[in-house]
Design a protein around this nucleic acid. Structure first.
Length: 736
DNA sequence: CCGCGCCGCTTTTTT
DNA sequence: AGCGGCGCGG
């Protein structure tokens, strides 16, 4: 049968494993996605109905990839197949069970909203205010992360241990935070998981229904599960124990958000009868790359050693380079990419630059801009986190769930309509502790001066509140009439005169308005989908990259953090900033477990490469503005000399901070492109239509002189906004 | 109420 | 260095 065609013996074992728990330990590039999809197809061919299969992943990207692959290989009956992220699956469970559950307990109702991290932080601050806790002494983000960890460990506010003064504070905030979430009819990401577990644990009938429904459960990236997720899987698998999990402890890089690769070992203890399949054959990288990666990861203690191998014997040695500083490092990388592309060794889209922290991307962006080479930046300011988009979503969420106080607070005075601190306080007083602010607003809008709230608030402050209440009630009505997201958005934009507010005449204003237009486009794509469902999807996707995935095979080098590189592969990989303190990050120095994770992060980066790896570090490194001496990463010591070329002989022993060898590699040509001639005046003006050989047509939205270069910001049709150097980008002005 | 300027902090990030 | 938060002054 063709389900196993082209698979190696281990892959076949995994795909056709008999019923019962199965653990697949899959090395990088060993074809784990393929195994997962073939397993699903195999199960269906064995007579399991598609809708009785649940496959969970961590990211939407992985989920849609898997779904696509399955659908492309199967004719028909994949309908009802459940492929999705943990959070999406839990949100679905919560929504379908919320109603008859909320009657017996205090719980959210089915139209709950999902708060993103900014909303969550705002609510944490409110909770801290309640207890008069100084938000400068105790940082809300830190408190939130402690609470988040507790939730991931399924520890409720009542169970939260308060052994120290700090924990006492957190315990109080946790308690209030949960109350506030419920009052707003909102959940945070962690609540989705914890809530699902709570429901299943407290109602045997519901649990049985789900256990009977999902006959098979498959899990991707199992090493990244946290305690809540593990418990959820255990509950779902129940007595049938049909769990098929795939993972690689060596690629566990999300400890800081609760992931615990020990769940792999725990799985073997909890399911001793589990069939274990080890997949060690790699189809991605050359043997040299695998050897380097293995040399790195072998240094970690207490792991099950894997023996990765490939039929792609040999391969180029890893190329190590020292640069003087970050600028030179970026210059080297961009220059190397340009050369390799010119020599037709690689396509621009084959190349990826990976770094430890997002802050490192800027120098590389600038180098690309100078060289006039387009690039793709992963994980930049997320589209849905932008101010104007958050405003729009807050309006929409309010229209769906008027109890959403965080959204109301956000946009009550946006655009400014004369509602300040005092008016806000008056409104809060009028509402009292039990009524939501929105109820008061709508009441004011309906009854005007006759409303009992009117007098308590006072005539002057009431006026803008009445006005806002009126437009808000119009939106609520529009949602109840099941108007589409696009229609409601248009209504909101008109009622708030948002364009005039956001378009302040600057380029930034134009950017923002563009983003609003982009959101309208998203809305249009969703068509008549129920607005609540759209908002949930947006809350759980929240990454424009995974939305616009189809068009991103465009050939440009990618810039990304090592974290976001996971799951991807590139022929040519640059891992940059290999300085001690950067990778490994200084925050991991005194924690062995953290240090081990930094090592895994490096390992993940190395194993993304198919053909060639460049590693770079710098002689000097700017820290927080301060210029300082840099040390090469300690990880470099673990790479055998014979697997490396480049500045290897000059590789200084890390114990010697300086030495004569350092001088040798200093100073290479930085300029990738000859400095452009000084423009007498700006060549381009805002509003001009232009054409670029790579990006096509677009409109100039900003242009300014930076040093001797004119930097033009162009919104390319269907491509997006790019910053270009006028002198090197070869922009043609089009007649309009 | 809004805008400006100073102070302080600084990993990773998906859901 | 650069951003965000907060406090003061208009």
């Amino acid at each position: 049968m063709d389900i196993i065609a082209g698979l190696n013996p281990q892959q076949i074992q995994a795909v056709t494993a008999p019923a019962g728990p199965t653990l697949v330990l899959a090395g990088p590039g060993s074809g784990k996605t393929r195994v997962l999809t073939q397993r699903v197809i195999y199960l269906i061919s064995e007579g399991v109905s598609a809708y009785r299969i649940l496959a969970v992943t961590f990211t939407n990207k992985a989920a849609s990839q898997m779904r696509q692959r399955i659908e492309s290989q199967m004719e028909g009956d994949t309908r009802g197949l459940n492929v999705g992220t943990f959070h999406a699956a839990c949100a679905r469970l919560l929504r379908s069970e919320a109603d008859h559950f909320s009657q017996s307990r205090e719980f959210v109702s089915r139209d709950f909203v999902i708060y993103d991290s900014a909303d969550q932080r705002s609510l944490i601050k409110h909770a801290m205010d309640r207890h008069r806790i100084d938000t400068t002494r105790f940082k809300p983000v830190r408190i939130h992360s402690t609470i988040s960890n507790a939730k991931n460990d399924l520890v409720s506010p009542a169970e939260f241990q308060r052994d120290s003064y700090y924990d006492e504070i957190v315990g109080q905030v946790y308690e209030s935070y949960q109350q506030l979430l419920r009052a707003n009819n909102a959940v945070d990401f962690d609540d989705l998981l914890m809530g699902a577990v709570e429901i299943l644990q407290s109602d045997p009938q519901i649990l049985k229904r789900y256990q009977d429904y999902y006959q098979r459960v498959l899990v991707d990236e199992f090493q990244d599960t946290n305690h809540a997720q593990y418990t959820l899987l255990q509950l779902l698998a129940g007595s049938h124990r049909q769990l098929f999990v795939v993972g690689d402890p060596d690629q566990s890089i999300y400890r800081w958000r609760g992931a615990d690769y020990h769940n792999v070992r725990r799985f073997q203890q909890d399911y001793p009868e589990a069939k274990v399949v080890l997949m060690e054959q790699c189809y991605r990288s050359t043997q040299t790359i695998l050897d380097v990666a293995s040399a790195i990861i072998d240094q970690n203690r207490g792991r099950t050693a894997k023996n990765l191998f490939t039929e792609r014997k040999g391969g180029n040695a890893v190329d190590l380079r020292e640069a003087y500083n970050e600028e030179e490092e970026a210059g080297f990388v961009v220059e190397t990419i340009a050369t390799q592309v010119l020599q037709e060794q690689f396509l621009p889209g084959d190349c990826a630059i990976m770094y430890r922290t997002n802050a490192q991307s800027r120098v590389f962006e600038e180098a690309f801009i100078r060289a006039g080479i387009p690039y793709r930046l992963f994980g930049a300011t997320r589209f849905y986190a932008r101010r104007e988009i958050k405003d729009m979503l807050a309006f929409l969420r309010l229209a769906c769930n008027p109890r959403d106080g965080v959204s109301l607070e956000r946009v009550l005075n946006v655009p400014p309509r004369g509602i300040g601190r005092k008016t806000m306080a008056a409104l809060q007083d009028a509402a009292g502790p039990d009524e939501s602010l929105c109820t008061v607003l709508l009441d004011l809008a309906d009854d005007g001066t006759r409303s009992p709230h009117y007098d308590s608030i006072g005539t002057r402050p009431a006026r803008p509140l009445v006005a806002f209440g009126k437009i808000l009630s119009r939106w609520i009505q529009a949602v109840q009439e099941e108007q589409s997201m696009e229609e409601v958005l248009h209504l909101i934009l008109k009622d708030t005169d948002y364009e005039r507010y956001i378009q302040d005449g600057t380029g930034i204003g134009l950017d923002r308005w563009d983003n609003v237009q982009e959101l309208l486009k998203v809305a249009r794509d969703f068509g008549d989908t129920d607005l609540g469902a759209v908002l949930e999807q947006i809350a759980l996707v929240s990454d424009v990259d995974s939305l616009g995935d189809d068009q991103d095979s465009s050939g440009a080098p990618c810039l990304m953090t090592l974290h976001s590189a996971k799951g991807l592969e590139f022929p040519l990989v640059f891992i940059v900033g290999l300085n001690d303190g950067v990778l490994p990050h200084r925050r991991s120095f005194d924690e062995p477990e953290e240090m081990a994770e930094e090592r895994r992060l490096f390992y993940v980066g190395l194993t993304r490469a198919k053909e060639q790896i460049y590693l770079t570090y710098t002689f000097r490194r700017r820290n927080f503005g301060e210029d300082a001496m840099g040390l090469p990463s300690r990880f470099l010591d673990d790479i055998p000399d014979e697997l490396m070329v480049g500045d290897v002989s000059g590789r200084p022993s890390r114990s010697l901070a300086s030495g004569p060898s350092r001088q040798v590699t200093r100073r290479r040509s930085v300029d990738v492109v000859p400095a452009s001639s000084v423009p007498v005046s700006l060549q381009f003006t805002t509003g001009q239509r232009v054409h670029h050989s790579n990006f096509g047509s677009g409109m100039v939205i900003d242009s300014k002189l930076v040093g001797s270069d004119e930097i033009v910001v162009v919104a390319f049709d269907g491509v997006g906004i790019k910053r270009l150097v006028a002198g090197t980008a070869n922009l043609e002005v089009k007649a309009n």
